[in-house]
Design a protein around this nucleic acid. Structure first.
Lengths: 117, 117
DNA sequence: TGTCATGTATCGTATATACTACACATTTGA
DNA sequence: TCAAATGTGTAGTATATACGATACATGACA
C-alpha cells in the first residue's frame, strides 16, 4: 500500500510533466499552506493534514476526495454525519457489507438509486 | 435532542433506582475514570470522552455502543475502517441512502444478510 | 554567471483532546 | 449522630493536531 505522501508526490510529479504549475511551492500556495509543510507531508515526515486541507489538495490534484481522505486515514465528516443520524441502521449495514464483494455493493447502490419509495 | 451528558445521567439514575451500584462514583470506578471527570461529562461541562471510554460506558450502562458513540459525535473506528478500505463504494452508498427511509435500509440489510455470494 | 525558483531543515506556536489529583460540602444509612 | 459515601469545584498535565516563519543549499535557465 502506497503511502499518503508518496501518492501525493507521484500525482503532483505526474501533473508537473505537462504543466510547470505543479511544483511543490505553487501547489502549496494554491492550496493555502506553507511549502515546507507540504514538503514534509509528501515525504511522510508529518501526518496527513486536516480534512479541509486534504480536500483542497484533492481538488488541486484532481483526485477523488473520499479516496484521498481514506489514504489520509480519515472518513469525510459528511459521511460520518449520515451515520450518526441513524447509527444502528448504518452500523448494521456496513458490518453486513464488510465481507461483500464490490459488485454486490454496486448492485445495492443501483437498486437504491432506481428504487421507488 | 437530548444531550450526551443528560442522557448518561438519566440512564444511570434509572439503573440506580433498582441498584445502588450505579452511583456516579461507582460507575466511574468500574469504567476506569475519575468521578470528577464523569460528573463534568454528565453535566455537559466537558466534551464527551474518547471512543474507548464511551464504549466502556455503553457496556456499563447497557447501551448500544454505536448509538452512544453517535450521541458523542463520533463514529466507531471499525466502521470507519470498513469505509476506508473501499471509500468510493461506501461513500456512494451512504450518500444514496442518506434520504432513504429506515425501512428501505432495513430491507437492504436483510437482502445482504440473506443474499447468496 | 547570476538570479530566480525549487525543495527542505529547523524551530516554534496555538488549540484541542483526554484526562488526573485533590479538596470540599452535602447526603445517607446504621 | 457520625462515619461513609456522594457529587462537584478548582487546578493542572500529557499528548496530539495542525500548522507558520525563516533560512538555506541546490538546480535551472537566460
Amino acid at each position: 500500500m502506497t503511502h499518503f505522501g508518496d501518492h501525493l508526490r507521484q500525482r503532483r510529479e505526474a501533473l508537473r510533466k505537462t504543466d510547470r504549475r505543479y511544483s511543490l511551492r505553487q501547489v502549496a500556495q494554491r492550496v493555502g499552506i506553507e511549502p515546507a509543510y507540504l514538503s514534509k507531508i509528501e515525504r511522510g515526515d508529518l501526518q496527513p493534514p486536516s480534512e479541509a486541507t486534504t480536500l483542497r489538495l484533492a481538488g488541486e490534484l484532481g483526485e477523488d476526495p473520499d479516496v484521498l481522505l481514506a489514504m489520509a486515514g480519515k472518513v469525510s465528516s459528511d459521511l460520518q454525519a449520515i451515520i450518526r443520524k441513524r447509527p444502528k441502521l448504518f452500523a448494521d449495514l456496513l458490518r453486513q457489507l464488510k465481507q461483500a464483494p464490490d459488485h454486490a455493493i454496486l448492485t445495492v447502490v443501483r437498486e437504491v438509486r432506481d428504487g421507488d419509495w
